[in-house]
Simulated assay, not measured.
Amino acid sequence: MNPDYQKPGIKYLQGEWKQDSVPAQKRLVTYSLYDLKFSCDSFFMKVSTVSKVNYGADTCMGSGHWAEYIKGTYTQKQDTLHLKGEFCTANGGYKDEKTCFRYGDYEEFFKVKQIKDSLIQFTSTSNVIPINARLVKRTNCIPKPL
């Protein structure tokens, strides 16, 4: 049976987090910046990518700038954060396979290190560039009905 309400999630993550830059950003051919929002046991993530290389149709690539969105739920065991969800539209709606870029399921594991109360480092198990995210807005979990 599914629960009637969201789970409370992890307190120190609750809120909106933003990555402003990546190390050696100006020398990279392609890089991504992350905006993350944690609300109770759910997350919403915007991945803004910048590329000096045209990988495909310019209607999707936006002259080297594009964004992808992901929503889902998360869990944390010790220092490992597990995000599981699906690619979606900017407003959280269903994204079908006819749209640009990735669609369908998303799953990622991150090593999480809280640097300060307002700075967290997420290190993906599939990427060498860490995400140093600063706290933009702290929120409290108010569980919503499912």
Rank of each mutant, 00 (worst) to 15 (best):
L146E: 06
M61F: 12
P143D: 04
Q14L: 10
L33I: 09
P143Y: 07
Q114L: 07
Q76G: 00
W17E: 04
M1Y: 03
F110M: 06
G85R: 03
E68L: 07
V29T: 13
F109T: 00
K77M: 03
T139D: 15
Y34G: 01
E97T: 11
Y12R: 00
S63T: 03
L135R: 14
T30V: 11
I129D: 10
E107G: 09
S51M: 04
D79E: 14
Q76V: 10
Q14T: 02
I142D: 14
Y34C: 03
Y74M: 00
L83Q: 04
K144D: 13
G9S: 10
Y12G: 02
C60W: 11
P130T: 02
E16F: 05
E16K: 15
D20W: 01
L146V: 09
E97F: 09
S63I: 00
S32C: 09
F44N: 06
G85L: 05
P8Y: 01
L119T: 15
D4K: 10
G93W: 03
C40N: 09
K95G: 07
S51I: 05
Q19A: 09
T139H: 06
L135G: 09
A57F: 11
K7C: 00
V50W: 08
G64N: 01
F122R: 02
C60D: 13
N132L: 09
V53K: 15
P145Y: 00
V112A: 10
R27T: 10
K144N: 12
I10R: 00
L81I: 07
V136N: 10
D105P: 06
D35H: 13
K137V: 00
D58I: 02
T59V: 13
P8A: 03
G104Y: 09
V29C: 01
Y74P: 03
M61I: 01
V128M: 07
P8N: 11
H65S: 09
K11A: 13
P23Q: 11
M45I: 10
S118I: 01
Y34M: 15
I142F: 05
G9A: 08
E86R: 13
V47P: 02
P3C: 00
L146K: 08
C60A: 08
